[in-house]
Structure formats: structure tokens, C-alpha cells
């Protein structure tokens, strides 16, 4: 395998990862701080033999992804918080029609138009479905440019495997920062056959892509089928990174960019002999709750987010009252610093 190291931004790494994973349809609408992604797709998608469309709106973009996926393409769209709110209608329909799709949210400050600073305040929207109905997305949160590249490839694989929408949840820092990465293609990404796709009914019965179940009991039956799929995903697709869980008395919990800052705080605190560990959820849905159940009551958790406490709720649910859970968060452009984390840990100790 050709190993090529390149200096690239997170947004570009996600775009290149998608192309490497065989993404052959992209539709998007410009919004800061993810504009490098749509620009990269405009430049490279045609060359890769795929379709690029700058849509007239976020609604159109996500519905184009719906259509492309229905026709058997590996389809992706990307945006940032306000744009992802607009996409929720389409995401619900994609989930209801069991279409594989990859959706990127490079989060910025909210609510409303907010600002263009990094944020993690769309966690609830991402992990609870976001649109109407009982559904989930697989939500993956990279913490480095390399991981953004790798997880994008994984996303297409998971989307096809489970016929589900997968969200890459990053923030403005991840999207904008440049890091050297290895461009290697993940071999698990062969294009699977899609006998359900709309290709014209030659030699078979017509295929129908739909999310409408009017007959009494039919929707409940379908929803139970979705839940069954979610149960399998919960069992098989949980991802996290952990540090020093063996001896830690305080475990920091953070994801994405925030986890990198938390990691620096862990190193600093351990230099002074403090037993601090880290859990970095990589899959935000399914949430890696089991890792929180391995520890004794004496362990305390400190959840750190660029929000006012969203993942915090999942940590509390996972801990289920057994351990103390503390929180440090800023939002609207504020990013908890290493110094703030260290000072908070020293207060809890």
C-alpha cells in the first residue's frame, strides 16, 4: 500500500476520506466553518467519477443525498450547526427509508445564527436523532485530522452495513486545523451490492423507497425492526479510547477536540503524581456506557465539554448514580483550557 503523508485540514481530510471510501455523490451548501470540505469535493469529486452538486439549500442537499442513496450511490453531505438543523427533516426521512448516508457536522456556536467559533453544543441533536420519530444515527467524533480521515471511511462502511445514516461530529477547530496524516485506504470499504436500490425494475419486482406505513400496526412493526438494528449496533459498534483507567481516582470524560485538551491536562496532572485517567468516547451514539460501569464507587468523573452539559447526561445515565459526576463546560466560543481543567481537578481532589 502506498503510504503518503500530507499536511491537510480536518475538513479536507474528511472530504478525501470520503472519496477514498468510494463516496460517489456529494451535495452541500456553503457554511462556515466547513467550507473547505465542499470546495474540496467540488475540485475532486468529478475527477473521482462521482457527482458534485452545490444545492440551493440545506434541505435540497440532504434530500439529494436521500435520492442518490436510494439510487445506490455512496452519498454524503456536510454542514455546520445551523445548516444541520435545516437538514433534520431529510435525516428523519433517510432514517425512515433505511438509506445509508454520511452527514458531517462541523459544529459552531449556537443557538440561532450563533457565531463561527468551535462548539460542541449539537450533541443532543446528533445523538437523540434530531428530527421527528424514533430513530438514531451512528455518531462518530474524531479528535485529530488523521482520525477524521479514518472515521469518514469507517462511516461509509457502517452506513452500508446497517443501512443507517452516520454522522461525523466535529467542531470548528477540527475542521480548520492542519495536521500531517497518512493517506491510506481502509480495505473494509468495498462497495456492497444493494438489491433494494432504485435502478429500474429490469428482471425483478419493483423496488420502493418509502417511510410511509399507513396500515394499522405496520409502522409499529417497522419501528421494532429499526430498534432491532439499533440493538445490534449498540452491541457491536461502540468505540472509545481510554487512558490510565487502572489506577485513576478521577476520570476526565471528553470527546473530539476537547479530549485533546483534556489529554494534555491528564499528562500535566500525572507529572505531579495525581492519579487521573481519561475516557474519550469516539462513538457518541452508541455511547460507550459499559466502560463507565467497570469502576468502583470511589472513582469520580469530570465531564468536560464545549457546551453547558450535553454528553454529561449520557455519562450520568451510564454511571447510574454509582459515582460522583462533575462538570466543566463553556459554550458560545469558549473552550475550557488545560489550566481550567487542572484547577477544576484540584478542587475535586
Amino acid at each position: 500500500m502506498l503510504k503518503k503523508k500530507v499536511l491537510i485540514s480536518g475538513n479536507e481530510a474528511i472530504a478525501e476520506g470520503a472519496i477514498q471510501a468510494g463516496c460517489n455523490f456529494y451535495a452541500g451548501y456553503p457554511i462556515t466553518p466547513q467550507n473547505e470540505l465542499i470546495a474540496y469535493m467540488a475540485k475532486h469529486m468529478q475527477q473521482a467519477g462521482g457527482v458534485f452538486i452545490q444545492a440551493e439549500s440545506e434541505l435540497a442537499a440532504i434530500n439529494m443525498v436521500y435520492g442518490a442513496s436510494a439510487a445506490g450511490s455512496r452519498a454524503m453531505t456536510s454542514s455546520s450547526s445551523p445548516g444541520v438543523s435545516l437538514k433534520q427533516e431529510g435525516i428523519s426521512y433517510i432514517s425512515g427509508a433505511q438509506l445509508p448516508a454520511v452527514i458531517v457536522n462541523i459544529m459552531r456556536g449556537g443557538p440561532g445564527l450563533g457565531n463561527i467559533a468551535p462548539a460542541q453544543s449539537d450533541y443532543f441533536q446528533a445523538t437523540r436523532g434530531g428530527g421527528h420519530g424514533d430513530y438514531h444515527l451512528i455518531v462518530l467524533a474524531p479528535a485529530s485530522v488523521q482520525e477524521a480521515y479514518d472515521l469518514t471511511q469507517t462511516s461509509f462502511y457502517l452506513a452500508d452495513k446497517y443501512r443507517i445514516a452516520v454522522m461525523i461530529l466535529g467542531d470548528g477547530i477540527l475542521g480548520q486545523m492542519m495536521e500531517p496524516i497518512n493517506l491510506s485506504t481502509n480495505k473494509i470499504n468495498a462497495q456492497p451490492s444493494k438489491p433494494w436500490a432504485l435502478t429500474g425494475c429490469k428482471g425483478r419486482k419493483p423496488n420502493i423507497i418509502k417511510s410511509f406505513f399507513l396500515r394499522e400496526g405496520a409502522l409499529e412493526e417497522f419501528n421494532l425492526k429499526l430498534q432491532k438494528n439499533y440493538d445490534i449496533i449498540r452491541k457491536k459498534e461502540t468505540r472509545y479510547e481510554s487512558l490510565f483507567l487502572d489506577d485513576a481516582t478521577i476520570i476526565l470524560v471528553a470527546y473530539g477536540t476537547m479530549a485533546r485538551i483534556a489529554k494534555s491536562a491528564v499528562s500535566q496532572l500525572r507529572l505531579t503524581g495525581k492519579k487521573i485517567g481519561l475516557i474519550r468516547p469516539i462513538s457518541l451514539w452508541p455511547f460507550p456506557e459499559k466502560v463507565f460501569q467497570l469502576k468502583s464507587k470511589k472513582v469520580k468523573y469530570l465531564v468536560i465539554e464545549m457546551s453547558y452539559g450535553q454528553m454529561l447526561e449520557d455519562v450520568k445515565l451510564a454511571v447510574n448514580g454509582v459515582s460522583q459526576v462533575e462538570f466543566l463546560g463553556r459554550s458560545g466560543g469558549g473552550v475550557p483550557s488545560e489550566k481550567e481543567i487542572v484547577s477544576k481537578v484540584n478542587k475535586i481532589l
Binding site: M64, Y66, G67, A70, A97, L198, K210, S211
Partner: peptide, 17 residues
């Protein structure tokens, strides 16, 4: 072969197909 589309979005879906 047919697909549903969300209300109003048929031509976005059709464009992509």
C-alpha cells in the same frame, strides 16, 4: 421502481437519482 420524497422535495430527490 418508485421513491417517496418529503413534502416539496421531490425535485431534489429526482435530481440526485
Amino acid at each position: 421502481d418508485c421513491s417517496e420524497a418529503a413534502h416539496g422535495r421531490a425535485l431534489a430527490v429526482a435530481t440526485a437519482i
